[in-house]
């Protein structure tokens, strides 16, 4: 059974369609990224999924419970919001105690274990208001982890963090993922989260443009080639004359070409470049990163529109 399942979710604010026909599932053990630029509908999706906002259409189930009745998940869900929800005048330990009081379910990790896990053992007597942003985020994560949840949802876990804070949070997420915890991360910082994700759903303008294992999303760009040439203008001219493929990027002497569904073979591309006298130095598959895949998907979505 899916830990988190969204079916045909729609959310409109007046005439603005914030989320359109979104569906995806997250299964136990996955680290699933809900990715997209600002304004793509990630936070609206999470708000609907967490029962904070009523969807216009569609349904969401979290740990087998409808999103409007999340209190029935019985403490199996942990959520960390963009802005840490902390009692700033109370100590780190007192914040954990307060959150445990609201959660109500006993058992699972002790507070000391959780503080140890997030690396705040030495600061448990410090006031929450005196913590740095990164430490505050770790404390917020600690409040979500106490009680041994099965699923933890993190909304923009890296927002506002400096490189050191980012590394700390990512290391912590990596540690949690290794322990088998199911995680959902909503973020636009693709480059940072790529190493910890196993799956992703990419959203653009409220629509899902890709979902599935990360390897599949990256693999969707198999037709991408990178040509290094000596004469870039000549190469670009030759490529534009011949149809079928698409130049999707160029930096200096390196040109990214998407063979896409043209059916063309890399050898044909090489032949065109050689014949044009562009001085082909190297032709290789483009090393896809999540950010590249994201750019390609956004471009495809824009072209589709």
């Amino acid at each position: 059974m899916a830990s988190f399942a969204i079916h045909s979710l729609h959310k409109s604010f007046g005439s603005v369609k914030a989320v359109q026909d979104l569906s995806f599932e997250v299964h136990p053990g996955q680290v699933h990224g809900l990715l997209g630029p600002n304004g793509s509908g990630k936070t609206t999706t999470l708000c609907c999924a967490l029962g904070l906002m009523r969807p216009t259409k569609g349904s969401v189930e979290v740990l087998g419970v409808s999103s409007r009745a999340l209190h029935r998940t019985g403490g199996r869900l942990g959520v960390v919001f963009d802005q840490p929800v902390l009692l700033k005048r109370r100590s780190v330990a007192a914040n954990l105690a307060y959150h445990a009081m609201i959660r109500g379910h006993k058992g699972g990790r002790t507070h000391d274990e959780v503080l140890d896990l997030v690396g705040l053992s030495d600061l448990k007597k410090r006031r929450a208001g005196a913590l740095s942003l990164g430490q505050g985020k770790r404390l917020a994560l600690a409040t979500a982890l106490a009680g041994n949840p099965e699923l933890v949802v993190l909304d923009e876990p890296l927002s506002g963090l400096d490189p050191v804070g980012t590394r700390e949070i990512l290391a912590l997420i990596g540690k949690l993922a290794a322990s088998g915890l199911t995680l959902i991360l909503s973020t636009h910082r693709l480059h940072d989260v790529e190493p910890v994700l196993t799956h992703a759903t990419i959203m653009v303008r409220g629509r899902r443009v890709a979902t599935g294992p990360l390897s599949e999303i990256l693999g969707q760009g198999e037709g991408l080639l990178q040509a290094t040439v000596q004469n870039t203008p000549l190469a670009l001219e030759a490529l534009s004359r011949m149809g079928g493929w698409q130049v999707c990027g160029q930096e200096g002497s390196v040109i990214d070409v998407d063979l896409g569904s043209s059916g063309a073979q890399p050898s044909e591309l090489a032949e065109v470049l050689v014949k044009a006298g562009a001085g082909l130095v190297r032709l290789q598959p483009a090393g896809q990163r999540l950010a590249d895949a994201f750019d390609r998907l956004v471009a495809q979505e824009s072209a589709r529109k």
């Binding site: 967490l50 029962g51 999340l70 209190h71 019985g74 403490g75 959520v79 929800v85 609201i102 959660r103």
Partner: peptide
């Protein structure tokens, strides 16, 4: 405003509660 309500409804507390 502080987010405590959000936190509570995702942690075993119903809205009427």
């Amino acid at each position: 405003e502080s987010g405590l309500l959000r936190m509570a409804v995702t942690r075993s507390v119903s809205r009427p509660a």
